[in-house]
């Protein structure tokens, strides 16, 4: 309960990033918007669950990556966002995030 009232700076940044994604998703077509929202929501929830809260280096890396992706998504030429699921079989057990976010452009 206390964590709800007092969020750390990095938590606030993460929420701001999430809000930024949801704002940007509104600018896309309704169908794409739903897809973007589900991808982004899944990504945030998965990382919130799996990443240790004290692993600042990794969290900061994820935030930088997220910001870059958000900047790309803000480009009006970008219509959507898709994920590429790379085989999650345990060939590289240490690697946590095995899918990456890609972006697709309107003109092709």
């Amino acid at each position: 309960m206390a964590s709800r009232t007092k969020l750390s700076g990095i938590q606030r940044q993460a929420l701001a990033l999430y809000r930024g994604f949801l704002r940007t998703a509104r600018l896309k077509s309704p169908e794409e918007r739903r897809r973007i929202e589900s991808v982004v929501s899944a990504e945030f929830r998965e990382n919130a669950r799996s990443v240790d809260r004290r692993n600042f280096v990794y969290i900061e890396y994820l935030m930088r990556r997220g910001k870059r992706q958000l900047d790309q998504l803000k480009n009006p030429d970008i219509t959507g966002l898709s994920t590429l699921e790379i085989n999650k079989a345990s060939s590289i057990p240490e690697q946590r995030v095995e899918h990456d976010l890609g972006v697709s452009t309107g003109r092709q």
Binding site: R4, Q11, L15, R19, L22, F44, A48
Partner: peptide
């Protein structure tokens, strides 16, 4: 919101 089972991400979604 937290008593209704919302985490901070849910709260962001609600506000949006």
């Amino acid at each position: 919101f937290s008593e209704l089972g919302a985490d901070s991400l849910d709260t962001v979604e609600i506000v949006m």
